[in-house]
Amino acid sequence: MSHSSVFATLTTASVIFSTLGINSKAAAQSLTVNNTEVTNYAQSVLAMEPDRQQAFEEIKKMIGEKEIPKIVCNDVNSMSSLPRKAMDIAVNYCNRSQKIVENHGLTIERFNKITVEIQNSSDLKRQVYNTLLRLQNTSDKSK
């Protein structure tokens, strides 16, 4: 994966929950995130991204030219304007994403807090970015 692709993935992680996401409300105080959590977060984001893209494209095809509304996984009302099949796609994505996050050793609450902190901390954003690069490089070499 090129540096621009990793940057795009990180950018997506920072806003991954603006469309097809999990509510990322968190307190404004600074959050301490250890190296294991950074790695788990990055692995989760990389694992979720293909599903997110696929779900987004499928929903986009279903609703046509209309703009996809902001979908928040733990806010059923955010999906209420979607056609039934599109809502099912969003719900399935949300369920898979939660499992991915949990399989990588984080709770949804912790994942959301880290997402918010990335938006507020250039140091954490850089750390996650570098971890994404490292993970992607490792993945590319193992292929």
Results as ranks from 00 to 15, higher is better:
115 T>R: 03
85 K>F: 11
78 S>A: 05
137 N>K: 15
102 E>Y: 07
38 V>E: 03
74 N>H: 04
13 A>R: 08
83 P>F: 03
37 E>A: 09
68 I>Q: 02
19 T>A: 02
102 E>K: 09
120 N>Y: 11
32 T>E: 14
100 I>C: 02
79 M>S: 06
84 R>W: 00
103 N>C: 04
130 N>R: 06
89 I>Q: 14
36 T>F: 06
69 P>F: 13
29 Q>Y: 13
61 K>H: 15
9 T>H: 14
12 T>A: 06
18 S>P: 08
62 M>S: 15
84 R>K: 07
122 S>F: 12
14 S>M: 13
91 V>P: 06
108 I>W: 00
107 T>S: 14
106 L>C: 02
41 Y>R: 08
116 V>R: 08
65 E>G: 08
73 C>A: 13
19 T>K: 03
135 L>K: 11
56 F>P: 00
119 Q>T: 03
30 S>E: 13
39 T>S: 13
109 E>M: 02
17 F>K: 09
66 K>D: 11
108 I>K: 02
74 N>C: 00
108 I>Q: 03
136 Q>C: 11
88 D>K: 14
23 N>V: 11
94 C>W: 07
54 Q>Y: 08
79 M>L: 12
139 S>N: 13
88 D>L: 14
12 T>G: 08
43 Q>D: 09
76 V>Y: 04
130 N>I: 00
30 S>C: 07
12 T>C: 04
108 I>H: 00
57 E>V: 07
63 I>S: 05
122 S>P: 05
137 N>W: 05
72 V>S: 02
13 A>N: 08
126 R>K: 12
96 R>Y: 12
74 N>E: 04
122 S>L: 09
113 K>M: 09
117 E>W: 01
47 A>W: 00
130 N>D: 13
137 N>M: 10
115 T>K: 01
40 N>W: 12
97 S>K: 00
42 A>G: 11
100 I>P: 02
98 Q>G: 10
52 R>V: 04
73 C>Q: 05
112 N>M: 04
8 A>F: 13
15 V>C: 11
111 F>E: 01
136 Q>W: 01
111 F>L: 05
54 Q>T: 15
97 S>Y: 00
85 K>L: 13
138 T>M: 13
28 A>H: 14
134 R>L: 11
21 G>T: 03
117 E>T: 02
15 V>L: 13
18 S>H: 15
137 N>P: 00
133 L>I: 15
135 L>T: 10
119 Q>D: 04
47 A>K: 11
62 M>F: 10
94 C>N: 09
119 Q>L: 04
107 T>H: 04
66 K>S: 13
102 E>W: 06
138 T>G: 12
127 Q>L: 10
51 D>I: 08
27 A>C: 12
114 I>L: 05
121 S>I: 05
139 S>C: 09
80 S>R: 01
86 A>N: 13
48 M>V: 02
73 C>F: 06
111 F>W: 05
